[in-house]
Design a protein around this nucleic acid. Sequence first.
DNA 1: ACGCAAGTGTAACAAATGTTACATTCTAAT
DNA 2: ATTAGAATGTAACATTTGTTACACTTGCGT
Lengths: 222, 222
Amino acid sequence: MKKRELDSCPICHNLNIDNEESFLDDLKCSFRYYEKNDLIVQQGQLCDALYVLTSGSVRSEMIAENGSSTIVETIEAPRPLAPAFLFSDNNHFPVNVTALDSVEIIVIPKSEIMRMMMTNPDFMQNYLAHNANRTQFLTSRLQLLSIKTIKGKLAHYLLEQARNTDLPFTLSKNQSELAELFSVARPSLARSLSEMVQDGLIHINKREYRILNLEKMKDLLL
Amino acid sequence: MKKRELDSCPICHNLNIDNEESFLDDLKCSFRYYEKNDLIVQQGQLCDALYVLTSGSVRSEMIAENGSSTIVETIEAPRPLAPAFLFSDNNHFPVNVTALDSVEIIVIPKSEIMRMMMTNPDFMQNYLAHNANRTQFLTSRLQLLSIKTIKGKLAHYLLEQARNTDLPFTLSKNQSELAELFSVARPSLARSLSEMVQDGLIHINKREYRILNLEKMKDLLL
DNA sequence: ACGCAAGTGTAACAAATGTTACATTCTAAT
DNA sequence: ATTAGAATGTAACATTTGTTACACTTGCGT
């Protein structure tokens, strides 16, 4: 096992050097390679090993009963795939994963992951931290989606970006991407934005935003 | 440290007896007691120890900037509080936690948790499994909330309850509770239900439901 | 039996959002 | 500088959902 293959992975970086050499050397794992559109993981498949995406990118999607698919997210290397489900009571993949381009994946058996955690505190901490960060991500997504109005979601998002100040800031997303993040239609989002501008809540110039009325923005969170 | 105090906790049960005796004996931890309405954890507070709720129940809520609060959930003993955030990069509590009645909480330092995991594979597995189950719960909530129409949410929920069969089944929730779960208004939910009955999709008698047309129900998930 | 509270069904109207379509502006490649 | 394509602004209309109000049923305790 080569060090460089894993050291950029969020759960394998920053390991203590001494330990790293030893446990990477005798790590039992296998490599798998896929081409674009190959099916990597099928929904319902048993999850008894950790899949680490080391090269390429994949698409992870839920498949509804009727065959319609809803894209969940695009994952880029390096990142582990569904590291939480490896230890869940219902340890089956909840999603289909397909290759978006040429993909390399390292498959590490659950027993090896257990051993690595028992022998290397840094690795254990990384693994736990990664799952914890994932939980925080899901929690904040849930919080955002549970806001019902578009203006409310915008207020939540913009206040977060502005860090509760009235200083100008630049968004990395365009309207379409914002609409997708909020699960709303693009024209509806544009309408809400222009109303908020008309009402003097915010100022927009291209992708540079500025909150003009912090009070009223916070009122939208109700 | 008494065995019984923790053995009903989801992350401490089913431990190997030999190990359990030893590591519970010299576990460094402290006990805290609260009365109804006491503030147990404040949002933003550093999270450097695991809080295990061993007796009583608590309310965990997000506090918005403007002071309006949105209830997140009620937690009943025995359960750890936010075990994921202990290891996250931003290890601050995202919620306020207040006592709903008389509460006993065991506080275990992060270092102790680390030690327990390193020395006891069962404990580590429990901890990981608990976090993984939590992730699955959040994922399914997210999936449900990302369905936009009320009928779609109902179809998703009822198909899940019916396990994709046309057999009758009984719900444990009334309309108001369902509406809250879906984050919609109660009369709107009732309207959707009665339309689905009129359209011959389902049959309702009190809390007993039955899916009459599986095909059309699945079409609603689009 | 009675009364009360919770749960449910439903209607009229208001508000929010989606849909579609098109004009305008911006951006980047040539 | 020109131009194609992306991004944005906006309007008209359809659809969905929320709001409010009230009647009706159900279950339960007195």
